[in-house]
Design a binder for these strands. Structure first.
Lengths: 270, 270
DNA sequence: TGCAGAATTTCATATTATGGGATATAATTT
DNA sequence: AAATTATATCCCATAATATGAAATTCTGCA
């Protein structure tokens, strides 16, 4: 089969370090798919960006077109195809938190006019499951399917509200990396204690500049935090007093969703 | 590489006839993905359904898990992963008709309490791009990303309203296949002429039993039909008089969307 | 009409996917 | 607790399949 890639196995790829063994063809096919997620891309660019020959890129892309994962416009390039609409839809269906939460998120977005997110914890990160854009002309730089740190986002903080302070420390250090000082942690910890007490969290331009948000956890039957939601907007729309007001609305929404998930009880679990 | 599949190339697969040449690994990977779209599936079932060995199924699935296309719960099985949420979202973004139409479809669904669909023509079929479920307890058996015949669905008929009668004949015969008689066509044609005149179409339990729907075309800048929408419900909610009333609402909605697509003009193009 | 860039096909080569089986891990029963 | 099952993961020789250079066919544009 290939001739070139044998050398570039261990080090060359700036991707995740893993995967020395695997299915090259499948991996490359997925690379092609993801390259097209960024927008229309021609065969030449595709081949270059992925360091494939034109033949290989063409062959992989053709298979994906045949299976409707990509769409191809002759002198234009490749775009994501309808199969991904279908699978995306199915993926949503399979996560019933999304289904249950969706109408509540909609309502909250309409009421606040701001962008609403839904997320869950995946490993040591917050995974964005849904996003309802607000009416305001503010672009929130988040994408469904993406992951963000737990300790520096509103969504993330709400997800770890029940964790121990030791765990908080671990996560904080892991997220901040070299930039983490013990002093920074103490300040953060003080805020987190208040958030945990109040059952909601804020994000004050920590993760994204000029963006503030208000978040709260969703609890499932046993009281465990299963997900969280947040309302985000530009700092100019997010005065301290409005954030306090929003906290109530967000908590009313998470309470309604939690109830649908079978949780009956008061914020702090006994 | 493989040993078994060499014989089963031409005939064995009841899939689409094509693809004698291709990237087996990629194709199989996509098969795995689609098998998981049906719901949780264990490794054993997966291997059996796709006629793969456990090793191969495991290897492919592991790659898909690593890339987050699948999620794996140890004693449970594989489900669609968050990457598909992301790509599904991106695919929607790339089709700007979906973006533009979405709020209008929402509003129509709320107003009518019924299921609203958006679709475009893809080849000789209608492709479902979006679906907003209604409030009523009626399950409409359609899935986003799926394709249905043009001549027997409301969505489809609205898409071909501008076609010639010759083309209608071709499509009708192709869709109905062996069941198509010239007499059946004459009856259908008579209705289609009325639909084309009125700028909307009905579907009277032709495609799905006990489901009726009202549809209308969306036109882009040049007047060409770019998409269509439909309102569907159980026949019991769809009296003839209500359908006439709905036709007005649906057309008001398509007019609004068409205007956003840059089309200024009256229903029949000059 | 002819050109240039893009799309597609061909084909010999050996790299990489394959699958049988062996091994490890975890649930379930005796 | 030990035995039993079912499931998950790993290993490796084999050759089938993916590969890429180049040739060929398209297609839009000047």
């Amino acid at each position: 089969m290939g001739l070139k890639q044998s050398t570039s196995k261990a080090a060359a790829k700036p991707r995740e370090a893993a995967a020395p063994s695997g299915s090259q063809t499948l991996l490359r096919g997925l690379d092609v798919l993801e390259a097209a997620a960024g927008g229309v891309i021609g065969l030449a660019d595709l081949a270059e960006r992925l360091e494939l020959t034109r033949s290989t890129a063409h062959r992989l892309a053709s298979v994906l077109v045949e299976r409707r994962y990509l769409a191809f416009a002759p002198r234009e390039g490749y775009t994501l195809g309808p199969k991904l609409l279908e699978l995306g839809f199915s993926a949503r269906q399979q996560m019933n938190i999304i289904r249950i939460a969706a109408p509540h998120l909609e309502a909250l977005s309409v009421a606040t006019e701001d962008t609403v997110h839904l997320g869950v914890q995946e490993g040591a990160l917050a995974l964005y499951l849904d996003k309802i854009p607000g009416r305001r002309r503010v672009e929130i730089g988040s994408r469904v399917g993406e992951r963000q740190p737990l300790t520096t986002t509103g969504l993330g903080k709400a997800l770890i509200l029940d964790e121990s302070e030791e765990r908080w420390h671990e996560l904080f250090m892991a997220d901040l990396g070299a930039r983490a000082t013990e002093n920074a942690f103490r300040i953060w910890l003080k805020r987190m204690r208040a958030y945990a007490r109040d059952g909601h969290a804020f994000d004050l331009e920590e993760n994204e500049d000029r963006i503030r948000c208000v978040s709260a956890p969703i609890r499932e039957a046993g009281g465990r935090i299963a997900a969280s939601i947040s309302v985000s907007s530009a700092a100019q729309y997010m005065s301290d007093s409005r954030m306090e007001q929003l906290a109530k609305e967000v908590k009313a929404t998470t309470a309604a969703i939690s109830r649908e998930l079978g949780w009956r009880g008061d914020p702090p679990r006994a």
